[in-house]
Design a protein around this nucleic acid. Structure first.
Lengths: 335, 335
DNA sequence: GTGAAAGCGCTAACAC
DNA sequence: GTGTTAGCGCTTTCAC
């Protein structure tokens, strides 16, 4: 660590006591203005900064937030992290980032490690494995110790904490609407995230929208290691869709590519809409019309909520779930 | 922070002194085995974990690494971060991540903040602004305070520290070779990263390879906010290339898309090769043949080097620059 | 074999 | 107004 000037040294140089220095730097009215000025001048000269470790040990506050991300290669989570980092640093908080790689075990270990390493609170998105197993005890342990958690995107009803989520059901309905409005007769649904809560919510939204219109659901689950392009092109050939909804970004982009491969014009013969406004959506050809979830804003919002709680500005309020509204970003994959 | 069992409490329960407890947990030979066993048993029962803050204050070591990333939405850096996180957590280090968003000012602020907040060392990639201004004083300040730095990918010759880089010059030459081998007669070069050290090194590599073969260089700089698709398709139409090298992932993928847009078959009429094996390369149509830089491995390597230094395993060694070898990932954009 | 005491750098209650 | 002291939880030297 950086060798620092301490209160002790300042005290010695000025022939004052440590506590006088400490108080002066805090503008304590007990101290004379003259002394305060002298102390501050010297402190500035020496570029004095309090030792964060000592302050933390004393106060049991570290001004650091544990951020638990399932998959940083996912652009959505990268954006969320960016939002978190921006808001945290604005408020002078550090973030300690861990990546669970969708593993339950790592999630448990990391939560334990960070909670014992003194983060003031957590912002987290539940890992895929944890979600499919439905385990939540490790979260509740943390909450029991009075360490606040804000859950992001992938949440659990069985944990009583603040949450920031997308209204995926609603978002899915608006995606259906886009395709319906341009006159699609037969719409196929593809998903690479059928195991995730968000994947289920989106599918549910599509189903509900389809039921109202009396449409039949054609649904293709893409397994992790399968060849999306092949699977989707078979699906397309079999059903002759004129519209495809991809419940995640990779599957939607793969749908565009599959159509290209089959020589089908997008959007004239097949329209495609997806979720997440990431790199893939921007760089597909044609560009993907997509439901933007405003990931950066989600990260910022979660951070704001957590910091409010930490600084006791919101202590008395009950846990709340904040819905981030989505918006449609139009690109070339729809008319 | 989590309310923890302390040595004091264990001492009280067992009627021993704090120092005896502390020594017992460290298997100090001064302590009788019987006592050690009793202490350890109780510690386990109470799930005792030492207070990291107190240990750090005492030892001036925090077991944390400051990670400074210019742009987390760039898949390359996300992969690097993943590698860093994996290696750090394996060695029981935490990482504190900050994102400079390519800004010099943020970089300076963050370095200062983290160095005063007690990170043991830094892993960083220089921001674009810092690189184009050529400023390095803030790095040297840190080094002067004996805080080690490992620079990743975007490095500076004027800073005397360990570095992990790709041999971009060599990588560019092998990219050229791929196109030459498949018989491309006229190759165009496009770049969205002409301001970065890596962009320059790649361009230099291409130039050198072209000179040897007596080829003429056709080079298109893409500005940040320009429409890549339009620019590249004009470039293609004007010069009738049968091969394109994109010096970064987005520009290479845009080249594929531009060719598609012009109705040119990739790879039969135009072959395309790029750099970075990220999401875009995988999900373009056809898939992008690319120079993989093994970003994850770069992150791991940098972390290993730093931790070795921190644990004094390598103290006497001089700063070293490690070159990570690249490899070509073949996909559909070349024959 | 065990314990007392000092000290890491800071804060805050309490003297003087 | 300024200083003394205790204490956050730990490690480590030195007594006993």
């Amino acid at each position: 660590m950086r060798k620092k000037v301490t209160l002790k040294q300042l005290a010695q140089e000025l022939g004052l006591s440590i506590s006088t220095i400490s108080k002066s730097l805090k503008n304590d009215p007990e101290i004379s203005q003259a002394t305060i000025d002298r102390v501050k001048k010297l402190a500035k000269e020496h570029n004095y900064k309090p030792n964060a470790l000592a302050v933390s040990l004393k106060s049991s506050k570290t001004r650091s937030i544990g951020v638990v991300i399932p998959d940083i290669l996912n652009n959505f989570f990268a954006k969320i992290l960016l939002g978190i980092e921006m808001e945290a640093s604005k408020n002078n908080y550090k973030i300690i980032t861990v990546i669970t790689n969708e593993s339950y075990e790592k999630e448990v270990d990391y939560l334990d490690m960070l909670s014992y390493n003194g983060v003031d609170g957590f912002i987290l998105a539940i890992s895929q494995e944890t979600q499919s197993k439905g385990l939540v005890e490790h979260f509740n342990e943390i909450l029991k110790d009075d360490i606040p958690i804000v859950m992001l995107d992938r949440v659990s009803d069985e944990v009583y904490c603040d949450k920031v989520v997308v209204d995926d059901n609603q978002a899915a309905k608006s995606a259906v609407e886009v395709l319906v409005k341009q006159g699609c007769k037969k719409i196929g649904v593809v998903s690479g995230i059928h195991k995730l809560s968000v994947g289920k919510a989106r599918l549910q939204g599509v189903k509900e929208a389809f039921e109202i219109e009396g449409r039949e659901l054609h649904y293709l689950k893409l397994r992790q290691n399968s060849d999306f392009l092949v699977e989707i092109s078979n699906f397309l050939k079999e059903h002759q869709f004129d519209g495809i909804i991809g419940l995640d970004e990779p599957s939607a982009v793969s749908a565009i590519n599959a159509a290209n491969m089959l020589g089908l014009n997008v959007p004239n013969e097949v329209s495609v809409i997806g979720f997440s406004n990431g790199l893939l959506a921007k760089h597909s050809y044609p560009g993907l019309t997509t439901v933007s979830q405003h990931a950066k804003r989600m990260g910022k919002t979660a951070t704001k909520i957590l910091i409010d709680k930490l600084e006791l500005r919101a202590d008395r309020y009950l846990p709340d779930t904040k819905y981030i509204t989505t918006s449609i970003v139009k690109r070339g994959s729809t008319k």
